[in-house]
Computed example of a mutant assay.
Amino acid sequence: MKLPNSKFLGLALLAAFGGGIAADAVAFDARSADRSSSRKGAKAEVRYPDATREEPKTKASSKMQGKISKLYKAYEKEDNDAEVLTLAKEIAADANANEYDKAIAAQLGAQAAYALDDSATAKQLLQQVVELNSLDNNNYFQSMLMLAQLQLQDEQYPEGMAMLDRYLAETKSNKPEDLIQKGQALYQMERYADAIPVLKQAIAATTEPKDSWYSLLLASYVEAGQPAEAIKIAEQLAAKSPDDKKAQLNLVATYQQADQFDKAAAVLEKMRQAGQLTDEKEYRQLYVTYANMDGKEKEVISVVNEGLQKGILKPDYQTQLALAQAYYYSEQVGPAIEAWQKAAPLAPNGETYLNLARVLWQEDRVAEAKQAAKAALDKGLKKPEDARKIIALP
């Protein structure tokens, strides 16, 4: 027994995985330990030991120390972003400011603009940091990475990918969190086949890859048309977190995408027995999965009736139609007619009434069949002559 348009929904992975599919953004915060360490005479952590860039020797201008200090103090205050942005612009316009002063001002100003949800200004200032090329490697490359992230976030994919590739090339970074940035960007650009090896490299580069990284790899396999690989990842995630409802439903969706309805049904049925199916969408997912399988009419009936009894499923058109067809194809004509009688008034046209009329006629319930055929005409039919033939019966 097949429902109309029975190919199940498809795999809306971004919705299924929620926020977990996105790699973590790493917006640089200039309130880092680097500056405070230098004040104490301690050596800042070298974040990019393999970078090809030679760090500039430029330092802050003596004439600008007062304004730079004022800018730092303003930045360290909470909810002071507007003032920081104003001071940063003043330094950038000051004739006494050297390239280092302007780069520092642009970096802090970009952070303030980002906090103020002014992405355009933040990107403009970060671009200045990169072009001025005056900060130490830690601050320079973190600004470059943040610029790439904001460009990608704003769907400026060519610019964002170019900046991200430049960042990776100049830092020689193999950090998994950096590779994930590229994998996610490639996914967003719908370059799924290109995203896969990058994501695999990121996962292999750490002993503790995040589940969201696997989810992104899974989504890439699905979109790249590699269902077997997608299933391997989905099974791995589901086995790792047997009580994680989202992981189990993602496995179900992956099986369905590969037309493996028997496996999808088995997972959903296990969840039903455990009381994990709690909303209408999940019950509908199970009965539609059964409807895509031959000889599973009894299972459709069981799931629909249970969902209706629990008040989880609504007695809407699709539910009543699924119930009617399942009863009919399991040779339970009486209950099938009852379900069709409930479905027909809710249908968008008269076709369901016409099917009801045909079944009633087959059961020698001619008067009822004629009444249903008239209702079919009233709701509209592609071939109204079919209903008229039933109405014309003696």
Rank of each mutant, 00 (worst) to 15 (best):
A392D: 12
K232R: 07
E280Y: 04
G334P: 02
Q318E: 11
R365G: 05
S37D: 10
M146L: 05
A74S: 13
A230H: 00
E76H: 07
Q149E: 15
N98Y: 02
Y255A: 08
E170R: 13
I390M: 04
G275H: 07
K102S: 11
Y283Q: 06
K200E: 15
A375T: 04
A193R: 07
K73E: 07
Y328G: 09
Y287E: 11
A266T: 11
M64N: 05
S241C: 09
Q156C: 15
L135I: 05
I231P: 00
T352L: 06
L13K: 02
S212H: 05
E282W: 03
D259F: 06
L126T: 08
Y100M: 10
S134D: 04
L164A: 11
N355I: 10
L377Q: 14
P176S: 11
K370A: 08
A376F: 05
A74M: 02
L356A: 02
L216F: 01
V252S: 06
A373P: 01
L199P: 01
L150E: 02
K123E: 15
K296W: 01
Q285R: 09
R53L: 10
Q142A: 05
Q142W: 13
Q309L: 10
M271S: 01
P4H: 06
V252H: 03
N5M: 08
A120R: 00
V288P: 00
Q142V: 09
E76V: 14
R272H: 05
L152H: 02
E299S: 12
K210N: 10
E159V: 15
Q128T: 06
L237Y: 00
V288A: 04
A82T: 15
N80W: 04
Q226G: 10
A343S: 14
G20D: 15
L147E: 04
V129M: 09
N349P: 04
P335F: 08
K245W: 00
A373C: 10
E223W: 01
K382D: 14
Q156S: 14
L277E: 13
W361F: 15
Q309W: 00
V333K: 00
G307P: 02
L237N: 05
E78T: 03
K2N: 11
G275C: 01
K7Y: 04
A265Q: 08
N98I: 06
K102I: 09
M64E: 03
K281V: 11
K73D: 06
A103R: 02
Q320I: 05
Q124N: 11
D29G: 13
L125N: 01
K67Y: 00
P158I: 00
K182V: 05
A373L: 07
Q257V: 13
P49Q: 13
A115K: 12
A60L: 14
A369M: 04
D194K: 08
V333N: 08
K263D: 10
L377S: 04
E299T: 15
D243L: 03
A195N: 08
Q257I: 05
Q341I: 11
Q65T: 09
T121G: 07
T254C: 01
S36G: 07
K374T: 12
A30V: 11
P335C: 12
F28M: 10
L346E: 08
A97L: 08
K270E: 14
I312R: 00
G10M: 08
V222A: 03
S220W: 00
E208D: 15
E229P: 00
S62W: 14
E235C: 07
L377P: 02
E170V: 12
P394Y: 04
P197V: 13
V333L: 01
